[in-house]
Every structure is written in C-alpha cells, then in structure tokens.
Simulated assay, not measured.
Amino acid sequence: MKKRGWGMGCMWYGIGNTALPNPAGAMVEWLDDASVNLAVGCADIGQGSSTILAQIVAEELGISSQDITVTSADTLITPEGGATSASRQTYISGNAAMLAAIEAKKIPLAEAGILLNQEPSTLAFKAGTVWAGGQPTALTIKEVIASCRKQGKLTLGSGWFNPDTTTLDEHTGYGKPYATYAFATQIVEVEVDIETGRVEVLKILAAHDVGRAINPALVEGQIEGGATMGLGYGLMEEITTVGGVIKNTNFTDYLIPTMLDVPEIDAIIVEEPEPSGPFGAKGVGEPALIPTAAAIANAVYDAIGVRIYSLPITPEKVLQALASQAAGAAG
C-alpha cells in the first residue's frame, strides 16, 4: 500500500559575509575591434560564473557577451576573487566586474562626446552603438575605440568590491553577518510504500528569490541541481564509519541520486532586486539545496503520520517508525 503526502521547507541564507573582509577584483580592457578582455579571480567550477560575469560587463558596456573573453582563476594574472563558496560570486565578483566596466567606459564615453560634440553625461553605449538623449546615433563603439587608439588613449579599467565589514556591537553583541540574504520555499510531493518503507519524491516546487536573474537558464539549472542534491541528502546519502574510519568510500555503497530518482522540478524564479547587487542580483547556489530535505521530511510525515528526525530517511527508518507507531497504538 502506498500513501502520498505534501511537505514544505523554507529557508533564508546569507550572501556576502561581512564579519571579515570579503573582497573580489576585476579588470576590463577594450581591444581594437571593440571586443573586451575580462580578468577575474572567480573560479568557475560548473556554476556558470564566467558566463554571468561576461553578461554583467556586456550589459554595462553596451556590447554582446559574445564579444567578451573571460580569463578566470589564474593566480598568476587575475586579481583576487575570494573563495567560490557561500553563494557569493555573482554578488561580489559581479559587483567588481561591473565597477571595472564602469571605469573602462569613461575614456570611450569622453571620446564619443568629442566626436559627437555632446556632453559625455548625455551619452550611453547600447547594442554596439553610441546613444545620445535616449536615441541611437550613427557612431559605433568600434569607431570610438579606434579613435582612442589613434591617440594612444588606453581604454581599460579595474574595480573591486568588498561588502562593508562589520563587527559585533560591544554593548548588545548584535551584528550584521551578511550583506544581503536569499530566501526560498520548496514544496514536495512524496509517495511512501508502507510495506517496503521506500520513499519516492514525485514532484518538487522550488520558489527562490534571486534578486535578479542575470541568466534565467543558469538559475533554473542551479535550482534543479540543488534540489536534486537535497533529495540525495534527504533520502539516501549517508557516510558509514566504524571506529572513525569511513567504510563506504565509493559510489557502490554511498548512494547518490541518478536520473531515475529525479522527479519533475518546477523552478520558480522570484525577482526582488537587491539594491547593492550588480543589476539587482544576488546568489542562488547553496539556497537551492537547503529546504529540500526538510520539505521531504514534512511530506513523509504528512503521508504516514509519523515524524522521522534523522537523515537520510531510509526504508529501514520508515518501517521502524511505522512499527513503533503501531506498537504505541496497540499499547
């Protein structure tokens, strides 16, 4: 016999810790053809940070992200980027890249003002052209960069960002540990086989406040990947130790979700721009993982009426909980 249940898990998570200095830097340089080199210390370990940083710089410079070459995580030539952890890179390295792009745009904008006989403050770069008063002109960014080159004007900039480092209040002990926070709610539907104890996750609804989704497809991928990790944490991943020695050191014994275990995941992107983030963005990496196991545990309780307090929720634990419930009812 199988029973179904629904459960909810909610979380908030700090982005950009402020207890200690937490900086990142970036360097931007226009090349002769108006393409751009971007150098950042941020390590892209599969989360798509190089794509995001290129998009942020492209948006600020008014060009396509396809025209940006990213050099990242080379300690010989790239500036400090800090750890690729704590869901911080979009927020902190993104701000650094945006500030570097703003700096790199100053000389070209001034040159465009000379060429158009306009105040630079009235000009903007957009879609590869110079705009004046909100309207496109016939002058291209490439022509502006070429004019700078003829005069030996360097078109580059650097920037860095560090959220304000705060200390604990000496009187109250209160402080501000993070620059901003991410929020999320996940709802899970499960089916529990009360004869075998097996729990199957049928669907995950995952709503995440990301500030602003610089790249919605990457945000969805982060949410889907994090929810899948949370499923593994909630139902199957467990380290077995004997006398302090790990016994399940391979994936034969340490189980993780496969494609057969992953249910339908409905990623819901909630955009509430963060004023201190680059174009309103903040992190989404770890928040995608955090609520899932709690939501699964609540759904199992909804299905069978008994609470399981330890993870993972294995078939053995489910059967034991059901047996205890039955014994209690009989007593």
Results as ranks from 00 to 15, higher is better:
Thr71Pro: 03
Glu119Leu: 02
Ile268Gly: 00
Thr71Trp: 10
Met8Ile: 14
Val210Met: 04
Gly328Pro: 00
Thr314Met: 10
Glu189Ile: 00
Ala54Asp: 02
Glu119Cys: 12
Cys42Gln: 05
Val201Gln: 09
Ile304His: 01
Gly81Cys: 06
Ala101Tyr: 14
Asp33Ile: 03
Leu231Trp: 05
Ala281Leu: 12
Ser276Glu: 05
Ile92Tyr: 11
Glu272Ser: 06
Ala179Met: 08
Ile52Asn: 11
Gln135Cys: 00
Ala124Trp: 00
Gly280Arg: 03
Val57Leu: 06
Pro79Gln: 09
Ile56Cys: 06
Leu205Asp: 12
Pro263Glu: 10
Leu109Phe: 14
Thr78Trp: 10
Asp32Ser: 12
Arg212Asp: 01
Thr78Tyr: 12
Ala104Lys: 13
Thr129Ile: 07
Glu60Lys: 11
Leu116Gln: 07
Ala97Thr: 07
Ala288Asp: 00
Ala146Val: 14
Ala124Tyr: 03
Thr166Gln: 15
Ala101Ile: 03
Leu76Trp: 09
Val284Gly: 04
Gln186Met: 09
Ser64Ala: 10
Gly16Trp: 05
Ile15Thr: 09
Leu319Ser: 03
Ala54Gln: 02
Ala299Ile: 03
Arg212Cys: 04
Pro177Ile: 01
Asp33Thr: 07
Thr71Ala: 06
Pro275Met: 04
Glu195Pro: 00
Pro108Ile: 01
Cys148Asn: 06
Gly152Cys: 04
Ser121Thr: 10
Tyr181Lys: 13
Leu31Glu: 07
Gln325Ile: 00
Thr122Trp: 11
Thr249Met: 10
Met11Leu: 13
Ala112Leu: 05
Glu143Asn: 10
Val245Lys: 15
Gly128His: 08
Val270His: 02
Ala83Pro: 09
Gly133Leu: 05
Leu156Ile: 04
Thr167His: 14
Ala321Phe: 12
Met236Thr: 00
Ile223Met: 08
Tyr91Ser: 05
Ala110Ile: 03
Ala288Leu: 01
Glu238Trp: 15
Ala297Gly: 14
Lys126Pro: 01
Asn215Ala: 03
Leu115His: 02
Gly62Thr: 08
Ser35Gln: 12
Glu200Pro: 01
Ala281Tyr: 07
Val306Ala: 04
Ile268Cys: 05
Val40His: 10
Ile77Trp: 13
Ser50His: 14
Gly159Cys: 11
Phe161Thr: 01
Glu191Pro: 09
Met1Thr: 15
Leu20Trp: 15
Pro315Val: 04
Gln320Arg: 13
Trp12Asp: 00
Gly283Gln: 03
Glu189Cys: 10
Ser50Trp: 12
Leu311Ser: 09
Lys126Ser: 13
Met229Glu: 11
Thr78Asp: 08
Met236Val: 02
Trp6Gly: 12
Asp302Ser: 14
Val318Gly: 02
Ser121Tyr: 13
Ala330Asn: 08
Gly113Ile: 01
Phe125Tyr: 13
Ser49Val: 07
Val144Met: 05
Glu274Val: 06
Cys42Lys: 10
Ala43Cys: 10
Pro275Ala: 11
Ala288Glu: 07
Thr51Tyr: 08
Leu139Trp: 08
Val245Trp: 13
Ala179Asp: 12
Met98Glu: 08
Pro21Phe: 10
Ala39Asn: 11
Arg307Cys: 06
Ile187Tyr: 14
Met236Gln: 14
Gly157Leu: 13
Pro291Met: 06
Ile52Cys: 07
Lys150Glu: 14
Ala132Leu: 06
Glu119Ile: 00
Trp30Thr: 04
Gln186Glu: 08
Leu235Met: 03
Thr90Val: 15
Met236Phe: 12
Leu53Trp: 12
Gln135Phe: 07
Leu289Tyr: 09
Ala297Pro: 14
Gln151Cys: 12
Leu218Pro: 01
Ile102Ser: 10
Glu103Thr: 06
